[in-house]
Amino acid sequence: MAKPTRIVLTGAALALTLTGCAAGGSDPATPSDPLGHVHGLGLDPASGETYAATHDGVWLLPTDQLPGSYPAEDAASTGAPRKIGGNSQDTMGFTVAGPGLLYASGHPAPGEQTELPTPNLGLIRSTDRANTWESVSLSGEVDFHDLDTVPLPDGQTRVYGYDATAGVIRVSDDSGTSWQEQAAIDLRDLAADPTNPDRLYATTSNGFLMSEDRGATFDRVEGAPPLYLVDVADDGGGFVGVDVTGQIWSSDGRSWVKRAMVQGTPEAFAYVGGDDEHWVLIADERGIVATPDYGETVTVLTTNEG
């Protein structure tokens, strides 16, 4: 889909408690190297690379075992997952903002950036497939536990972020340089509508909510299941999500269809689309899996052991 990414936050009020690049730029990992806790998943349409953002940096996932319907336009990664660029920051918030453009947040790697007033990365950005990162704004101030982006007509990128420390949504209309504080909300997951930059969805302990004013106010989406993680289709007309029991749901924007179950407690979830099939990435008890049919059949990309 055009808006790849889903990022995992800590949502204490919810019923369910849940606790990349060319080979020359990656550090090889053996099959015994675990990824650890996965915060987010995403697909870069420019490179065809599939990423996992984790407590220990961003990793490139192997996708060579997937069929041609998987929406990776270029050569697939092979072998074991590989940590990209040797970077070990705790990548809490993560999103593929567009072809070749990644945004993230979280905490520095141990021993790095000790001059920060607090160990928060603010908003960081990579334009070289997660090999290197540059600070954009709010360094030492904010830890975004969720990020999502939509393009604006003036060529800028709107960035939505959930400031986990303050418990508020922040929005930037200049590609993350300056920010406005929006609603205070008990948030689990954010999803922006790629066809309407002002429309933002949120999964919360109070249900599935929608904002039509850039996250300033929210109303309940009537008839929706109690979603825990959610993503929006690239045409803005539907959803794929996981509820608080682990049930996968899909929606055309009018009605909801119950699909398969995840296994155990999901850590991250991403709808990456496809022309003929609906590819979803899930990090759960199995490891990281890819499915073209909402979980009915899956291919395991990496287990929890590596």
Rank of each mutant, 00 (worst) to 15 (best):
G122C: 11
L41C: 14
E267I: 02
D252G: 11
L43P: 03
E222L: 05
T302Y: 01
V96S: 00
G253P: 10
A166W: 06
R259F: 03
T177F: 10
T118E: 12
A260C: 03
G237S: 08
V272F: 03
E222M: 13
T165Q: 14
W256C: 04
L66S: 14
S47C: 11
E305V: 01
D173I: 05
T204K: 09
G295R: 03
D198F: 06
H145T: 02
G111Q: 02
P151M: 06
D163R: 09
V272T: 06
E112F: 04
G161S: 11
T114A: 15
G253L: 07
G237T: 01
G36E: 11
E285G: 05
Y70E: 07
T114G: 10
S205G: 15
C21G: 00
A283T: 01
L43M: 06
L35Y: 02
A183I: 10
L35R: 06
G295P: 02
A104V: 00
V150G: 06
I7Y: 13
S88T: 06
G223H: 11
F239H: 02
G85W: 13
D243H: 10
P71K: 09
N131F: 05
T127S: 11
D74K: 15
A97C: 11
E181D: 15
G236I: 02
A80T: 15
N196P: 00
A97K: 05
S178F: 09
G246Y: 00
L200E: 10
H107T: 02
D198G: 10
G24N: 12
G223Y: 09
G68I: 05
L147N: 10
G93I: 00
D74S: 15
E134I: 02
P117V: 02
D173C: 07
D252N: 13
H107N: 08
W279T: 00
L209K: 08
G98Q: 11
T195G: 08
D146L: 08
S88D: 12
N87C: 01
G207I: 03
F94P: 03
A12K: 10
A76P: 12
E141Y: 09
P151Y: 04
T149K: 14
A76K: 15
P292A: 05
L41P: 05
G24M: 03
L187K: 06
A29Q: 10
I7A: 11
D198N: 08
V242F: 12
A270M: 00
G57N: 09
G274N: 09
H55S: 11
Q113G: 00
L101A: 01
S77Y: 01
P226N: 12
N206S: 13
